[in-house]
């Protein structure tokens, strides 16, 4: 499903060159739930951003769903992300001006879908995270756990094959984190959605199929 071949990422400023990822080779199978762990600054988020086509590697190839992405232009990348990928961020990144329902609908407005269909799909996604009764609320009226569940609904509303979660429980207490994790596990088990999740929490990582560790930009056993 996801294949990273000899991926390196170097950040350059005028004076400093930082090697964020060094020759990463990784395969994630369809339906697999992979967690990525490592100390802060080891390159976990960079790796996730490269898989999510939000950032470009300095060297190496990314293959997703048997499609080489390297030659894609910005517009094609945007379409690919819209169709295939869903994102969950540690700080939720919900749009405060929009209602819960509108936030969840967001990925669908970039697809050729009618308003009624979009609304139906968004309501369905909210139902699956148990927040249909909150769809008219604003994000500011929700708890942290609820916000993250809205973010999950937004990530799954377009039925992507891959979900990329960057410390989805990082800002939540253990109860709320557990709830979020349960949703992700259920999604993986029932819909065979491939999930790559960055986490600091060993206990949470233990619930996934496979764990990889990064240290100073390299993969370690």
């Amino acid at each position: 499903m996801i294949e990273l071949n000899s991926i390196s990422k170097v950040y350059r400023t005028k004076t400093v060159e930082t090697l964020a990822l060094d020759n990463i080779n990784l395969k994630v199978d369809k339906g697999e739930f992979l967690s990525v762990m490592g100390p802060s600054g080891c390159g976990k988020s960079t790796l996730l951003n490269i898989i999510g086509l939000l950032d470009e590697p300095t060297r190496g190839d990314v293959v997703i769903d048997a499609q080489g992405i390297s030659n894609y232009k910005t517009r094609a990348l945007a379409r690919f992300r819209n169709q295939k990928l869903g994102f969950i961020f540690q700080s939720f990144h919900l749009i405060n001006d929009l209602s819960v329902l509108d936030n969840v609908e967001l990925p669908l407005i970039y697809r050729p879908l009618g308003a009624a269909k979009r609304r139906e799909m968004a309501e369905e996604a909210l139902e699956s995270v148990g927040l249909k009764n909150r769809m008219k609320h604003l994000p500011s009226q929700l708890s942290g756990g609820q916000k993250q569940r809205v973010a999950i609904a937004r990530a799954i509303v377009g039925r992507p094959e891959i979900i990329l979660a960057d410390e989805p429980t990082g800002n939540l207490d253990s109860v709320m984190g557990g709830e979020v994790m349960d949703i992700l596990l259920k999604l993986n088990a029932e819909d065979a959605t491939t999930i790559v999740m960055v986490t600091h929490d060993k206990r949470i990582a233990g619930k996934t199929h496979r764990l990889i560790r990064l240290f100073d930009g390299s993969q370690v056993n």
Partner: peptide
């Protein structure tokens, strides 16, 4: 950022 991540183009 969110809009772009979820498929908005320029």
């Amino acid at each position: 950022g969110v809009r772009k991540a979820f498929g908005a183009n320029q």
